[in-house]
């Protein structure tokens, strides 16, 4: 599903963030991406939704090299990918429901379907009773779960998470990871960047280790 073939990334500033990265993640697999901060985890994750473009090598998603995808097609491509951020990137000017509904509204789904799918996603993350609440009134863990609901509401083929447990205590982190495993079990290819080695140690998933922009 995701295949990096000698991918490198050099920023215009001259910083070489990634060097000759090659790995593959099959459909429905879950893998962790670890490494110290500055090792290139964020850059690697940014390449998949084309927030950054690779400067060398081939990036194959579902068998297609997306490195040169025209800008006009990028939005449609991104709709197949669910993104989860450490700071959850929720919009505080609207309730939880509207935040989760955003990807469906962008894709132009009919309101009835939006309602059905948003509630299903909120139910999945255990926040069905908070749909009218403003995200600002939620706890950090709850906000992260709203972010996850928003990422999966469009039934993406790929789920990417950048330090999703960065601000959470161990119990909440465990809970979030379990959620990811559940989505992975229904066939979503999942890549989670984290530096929390103790958390993933007792989970049975492959681990991609980055160090100084290279695979270890």
């Amino acid at each position: 599903m995701i295949e990096f073939d000698r991918v490198s990334k050099r920023y215009p500033s001259g910083l070489q963030a990634l060097r000759g990265i090659s790995f593959g993640l099959g459909r429905g697999q879950l893998a962790f991406l670890t490494g110290h901060s500055g090792a290139g985890k964020s850059t690697l994750l940014k390449l998949i939704p084309l927030i950054e473009r690779p400067s060398g090598g081939r990036l194959l998603i579902d068998g297609t090299d997306v490195g040169g995808l025209p800008a006009a097609r990028v939005p449609f491509y991104r709709r197949r990918i669910g993104l989860i951020f450490q700071d959850h990137n929720l919009l505080f000017d609207r309730p939880v429901f509207d935040n989760v509904a955003l990807p469906l509204e962008i894709a132009g789904h009919p309101p009835l379907e939006i309602g059905r799918r948003v509630r299903a996603a909120l139910d999945k993350v255990g926040l069905l009773d908070k749909e009218r609440a403003n995200p600002i009134a939620l706890s950090t863990g709850e906000r992260q779960r709203v972010g996850i609901a928003r990422a999966v509401v469009n039934r993406p083929a790929i789920l990417l998470a950048d330090e999703p447990t960065g601000n959470l205590d161990p119990d909440l982190s465990r809970e979030i990871m379990t959620l990811f495993e559940q989505f992975n079990q229904i066939g979503v290819t999942t890549l989670i960047a984290t530096h929390d080695v103790s958390l993933i140690g007792d989970m049975d998933h492959p681990c991609i280790r980055l160090e100084g922009g290279e695979l270890r």
Binding site: P75, F76, R78, R79, N89, L91, D93, L102, I106
Partner: peptide, 13 residues
């Protein structure tokens, strides 16, 4: 912020 978020989740121009 809203624009940046919507673009990340597939909003067209």
């Amino acid at each position: 912020e809203e624009i940046l978020v919507t673009r990340l989740i597939g909003a067209t121009d």
